[in-house]
Amino acid sequence: MDQYINTPLTMDKVKGLQAGDYVYITGTIYTARDAAHQRMYQAMEEGKEIPFDLKDSILYYLGPTPAREGQVIGSAGPTTSSRMDKYTPLLLDNGLKGMIGKGKRSKEVVESMVKNKAVYFAAVGGAGALLSKKIKASKVIAYDDLGTEAIRELYVEDFPVIVVIDSKGNNLYEIVLQSS
C-alpha cells in the first residue's frame, strides 16, 4: 500500500505501517552513520546529551557526497544498516521511532523494535542522485569534524522508502524469500 506520512513519527503512525508498504516521508529527519552512532552511544552511556531530540524521530543512515554550488546536498542514498545494529537498541529505548537504511538487521534490533514499537525502512541503495532531489534542506548540526559522517538535520519532501520491518516484527526481506 502507498502511504504518505509527516514527521514526527508518532505511535499512531507507526501502527499504521506494515512490511511491504511504500511510504513517502515529509518533514525533518536526521542523518547518522558509523562514527556518529559510536559518539552518540558513548555520550548516552556517560549520561550526556546527544545533539537532537530522539523522541518520535527518524534517523537516516547516510554519508552524502559534497554538495556543489547551488545544490542542497550531494548524492544521498542509504548505507548498510547492520553496522549500526550494536548501537540501535539504546537509541530505540530512548525514543527513536524510525530508521532508514538498507539491508538486514540483527535479532536484537528487531526485538527492540517490537518492544519499543518502531519501524525500519529501506531506501533504494545506489539511487543517491535521485534521493538527493527529495531533500530540500540540509544542515550539519553536530560532529562537524567527522566530515561526511557528521549529523545532519534534513528536511525531506515525499522521500520514498519501503517498510522492511514493521513494529510487529514482520520482515519483508524474509517474506519474499519464503514465497519464492
Binding site: 511491504g20 511504500y22 547516510l62 554519508g63 552524502p64 557526497t65 556543489r68 545544490q71 550531494g74 548524492s75 544521498a76 542514498g77 548505507t79 533504494v124 541503495g125 545506489g126 539511487a127 543517491g128 542522485a129 535521485l130 538527493s132 532531489k133 520514498p160 519501503i162
Partner: peptide, 27 residues
Amino acid sequence: LGKQILGQLAENLDIASEDSIPICQDT
C-alpha cells in the same frame, strides 16, 4: 515493486549525468 525499483535506478542514472550528482554517495 521490483520494476518500480529498477525504474528508479534508471532515473537515478539520468539525474546523475544531467545534474552532475554522483550515481551513488559511496564513491
